[in-house]
């Protein structure tokens, strides 16, 4: 659609099934080419429309209709796939935080190139509370971190905790403890071209808070722009201006 009419703002709405399984190939290639599409992945870690089978993002070991003894599939992390494909934009948000979701979508729309927004979504019927461990009001501040460009990576109810790179891994530290000051805390740069830190941030979970907000947003000429430039150049300089030119090109003769 975007190639046929570059004027359009094209949005692709996906779930964890079509983005990570049946359409996984298409997603990574759209990301790799940096096609100017806005992709939203509503990740509820389950196949809901088919009534509760495990998906490529279902937590390891989870019991579902098709994994009555627990899954033995290691799940995908959509953010890591995007980084792996050298994606230029990745943001993550929660279904229960509309303001953050709006911000992520707005940044995605403004980004030239392929932007992917993962929305951690609850499935009330088939996978209720799958994200509860991070989304419940009681724990949300401690289990998630909202990244902001140019600001230190702080989280917790009173922003008393932060992330530090210890030379090997990311770790959680508390301001004021063991001599930790704000200067020890990493500052988020969404525009770092190298995917290394962004990959680590997208990967977080477990002992580390789940990263939310715009994790990666780098400038790279989009497929759409490159395509239009080539079209424009050929339209100007191309040998054939109309079909009659082409039909009569090369070796022809009169009978």
């Amino acid at each position: 659609m975007k190639l046929a009419n570059p004027e359009l703002s094209v949005w692709v709405s996906m779930g964890d099934g079509d983005s990570m399984a049946i359409g996984g190939n298409h997603l990574i290639h759209a990301v790799r080419r940096n096609q100017d599409l806005n992709v939203t992945i509503f990740n509820n870690e389950i196949y809901g429309l088919t009534k509760g089978q495990y998906s490529p993002t279902t937590k390891f070991g989870q019991v579902t209709k098709t994994s009555p003894f627990g899954t033995i599939d290691y799940p995908f992390n959509p953010g890591e796939l995007v980084m792996g494909a050298q994606g230029t934009f990745f943001a993550r948000t929660l279904d229960c935080v509309p303001q953050l979701t709006t911000e992520c979508m707005t940044h995605a729309a403004q980004h030239d190139g392929c932007s992917v927004v993962e929305v951690l979504q609850n499935c009330v019927i088939f996978n209720d509370k799958t994200h509860a461990a991070i989304t419940d009001r009681a724990v949300r501040d401690d289990r998630t971190i909202v990244l902001e460009h140019g600001k230190p990576m702080l989280f917790g109810k009173n922003k008393e905790k932060g992330l530090r790179f210890n030379g090997r891994l990311l770790e959680v530290v508390t301001l004021g403890q063991d001599g930790i000051t704000i200067d020890d805390i990493m500052v988020h740069h969404e525009d770092t071209e190298d995917t290394g830190i962004h990959m680590m941030l997208a990967h977080m979970g477990g002992d580390l808070p789940v990263a939310l907000g715009v994790i990666r947003n780098v400038k790279k000429v989009s497929y759409t722009q490159l395509y239009e430039e080539q079209m424009e150049e050929q339209m100007q300089s191309g040998k054939y201006k109309c079909m009659d030119d082409l039909l009569n090109s090369g070796d022809t003769w009169e009978v």
């Binding site: 290639h29 050929q234 300089s237 191309g238 040998k239 079909m243």
Partner: peptide, 17 residues
């Protein structure tokens, strides 16, 4: 070859795409 005639060709990642 024929972008000058407006042909928009997309080499997709597979037949389905």
């Amino acid at each position: 070859k024929h972008k000058s005639l407006g042909a928009r060709v997309f080499q997709a990642e597979d037949e389905i795409a």
